[in-house]
């Protein structure tokens, strides 16, 4: 009997593991944001708790190779420049390094320098953080608000409504979410979807 229970338990665990690969299993808007501690391009570790004196944090799952990320790079940098001084800095996290040569740690350092990024660009070598967040594509944005010691997810989705043409953007989803939080209001659009590159799971 015990053996059967054990086998069943193992089966259940296996099923759940399989699900993580296919379907987003991360926290939903309103839930607590998973912690992380990852290596930045300067070799130093950066963790969520480092932002305990900020109002919140913009987390962008990103990489080097994805053309949709490339389209958004300047806009991601602008988000940090605009909102870091207002208490919402940005961190980018690359989960693709083990699978994509262009997304290696060395290439991250290069890209960070070339583009003059003003935010940390972190390596998620084990892909654990991307999995914990339920990230599925790059770019994939999570906006967190700090309440005391904890961070809560207030927005998941796209940066805006037009990856191809920054001049044709009509809805600035991520910026609108942060503006609302800064004004003490509820985020108007809490979740959006966008075309992006699948995270290259190991």
């Amino acid at each position: 009997m015990k053996l059967i229970s054990l086998i069943l338990l193992v089966l259940v665990c296996m099923t759940e593991n399989n699900l993580i690969e296919d379907v987003s299993a991360g926290p939903k808007v309103g839930e607590k944001a998973p912690s992380f501690k990852l290596k930045n391009v300067d070799g130093k570790m950066v963790s969520l708790s480092d932002y305990a004196d900020k109002k919140g944090l913009i987390v962008v799952f990103s990489c080097n190779h994805c053309p949709y990320v490339v389209k958004y790079e300047d806009r991601i940098n602008e988000l940090n420049k605009k909102y870091a001084p207002l208490g919402f800095p940005l961190v980018a996290i690359n989960p693709n390094a083990p699978k994509v040569a262009e997304d290696s740690y060395e290439k991250m350092i290069e890209r960070h320098r070339e583009k003059g990024f003003t935010f940390p660009y972190l390596l998620d070598e084990t892909q654990e953080v991307a999995k914990k967040y339920g990230a599925e594509r790059t770019p994939h944005v999570y906006i967190l608000e700090r309440k005391g010691k904890d961070f809560f997810i207030r927005y998941i989705g796209a940066i805006d409504d037009n990856a191809g043409d920054p001049n044709a953007v009509t809805k600035r989803y991520a910026a609108d979410a942060i503006d609302a939080l800064l004004a003490g209001k509820e985020v108007p659009v809490k979740e959006t979807k966008a075309i992006g590159c699948t995270i290259k799971w190991k």
Binding site: A158, D161, K171, Y173, K193, I199
Partner: peptide, 20 residues
Amino acid sequence: EKDPNEWIDRVNSQWSGAIP
């Protein structure tokens, strides 16, 4: 279509928009 957010859910509500 311009804004993917307008149609991705109509393909499949579980889809994040990652391609392929």
